[in-house]
Nucleic acid binder design. Structure first.
Lengths: 233, 233
DNA sequence: CGTACCGTTGAGTGTCATCAAGCTATGTGG
DNA sequence: CCACATAGCTTGATGACACTCAACGGTACG
């Protein structure tokens, strides 16, 4: 079905088979009616910080980063977003971040004003949006803890674990994790320099925890020890 | 009126006189009917990480911190919360943080199940909750940027600016800012050690930017230079 | 007035940022 | 198809800064 979807962990404990919030076909259809499917190439800027926020976006396929330009000229990454993620919620009618495609991406572009009307009409659907934003808030808080770590290797390990958690890979012996973003994006996300990320990557590999098959594909060799490092906050 | 309230910045640009979302008397009344007003002393633990989440809380007066215990025994503070803030939104029926009163606090305790019913029934009210959570998400992202700074003095300056932004003080010459939390709480929030916070405080004072009247009350002496330091990311 | 607790100050060490130089992949045009 | 250019990545040396450990000072409370 070619219609927006999203996924979130609910507030409440629900039946074991439904511990993820998803949209019903009807809800997706409703959203489809106010949305346009858009394909964008890698590096395409989707919107800029400060621009009027006409649209909200849902990702169907691909990867997006959001960031803010700091006075010093550096870029602080706010988030990486993937399939079923939502972005573009603004403040006072203006976007607070810049959003840019990391890899080729397929989006659903929803009119903010129409979405507002729809959400105010359909409280059940809105509740799912509320769950999604709450979910993202928790993710953001987790990341803040992540970034508070001192050691570069530990931070990168957490990042790899984070990315691995997304891709619900078959329980393979040595799962591969895709890192579509550049080293400098990872650095911006982790609050490190590009060089430190590179060194940390080398170190994780030297210690036998992971192996970088390519720059954008890492294989987890020793999941238990990696997990131990991740937990060693 | 003794009823829960909240405040948030809306998504959309609205009339100049309404750039803050607040609850209508009727909405507050509805919330009052499913809430209990609770007074708690400083340091009281409101709920613990992992506990069943029966309640959501809205702060009437006072200050609360939320934190997570890390494996190492350290505490990573997730947020400080004040009047009109909301907390206790959980994941799968369990709280993800521990919440503790920093100062004596007056809360509204809302039954999560009853609130869920109410929000699904009243889409306009729910929309305000959605705006509030989105607002907190943005705050969380800002804070992540803050914590990414390298220099301790800059981080503390940002923290003071953050606290100052809350208290919409009359445009006084040298505004006072209340810091009800302990140094080690600030340290936990900023990702620094207690000692570094202390040294940073000394340095800001030495540079003539602020003056610590008491440990919990700081006076801003040179707002422009403080702002410059804050912006020097 | 005494006792904790919180906060400040000091000395030394380790880690990451910075600066700088090479290296590798990717894509383009001859 | 290959030379070349460019951006992205890796590696190395150095210095600044925050953490750690440790001792001292101040404040609140009984």
């Amino acid at each position: 079905m070619l219609a927006p979807s999203l996924r979130a962990i609910p507030f409440l404990k629900t039946a074991a088979d439904a511990n993820l919030i998803t949209l019903t076909p009807h809800e997706r259809q409703q959203l489809m009616q106010i949305s346009t499917r858009v394909r964008l190439p890698a590096r395409k800027v989707i919107y800029r910080e400060g621009a009027d926020s006409e649209w909200v976006f849902a990702i169907d396929e691909g990867a997006v980063k959001t960031y803010r330009e700091l006075p010093s000229g550096k870029r602080a990454l706010s988030a990486f977003l993937f399939t079923n993620d939502l972005f573009g919620l603004a403040e006072q009618g203006r976007y607070v971040n810049t959003a840019q495609a990391v890899a080729p991406v397929t989006l659903y572009r929803l009119s903010l004003s129409q979405l507002t009307v729809l959400l105010k009409h359909d409280a059940e659907l809105q509740f799912k949006f509320l769950a999604k934003v709450t979910h993202e808030l928790r993710e953001s808080q987790r990341r803040t803890i992540l970034v508070n770590r001192r050691d570069a290797a530990g931070r990168l390990a957490m990042f790899i674990a984070l990315m691995a958690a997304r891709t619900c890979h078959s329980a393979r012996r040595h799962p591969e994790v895709s890192l579509p973003m550049s080293r400098s994006d990872i650095a911006g996300f982790l609050g490190l320099t590009l060089e430190s990320v590179s060194r940390a990557a080398t170190e994780l590999q030297r210690r036998g925890l992971v192996k970088f098959e390519t720059r954008h594909l890492v294989r987890i060799l020793d999941a238990p020890r990696l997990a131990k490092l991740v937990a060693a906050v």
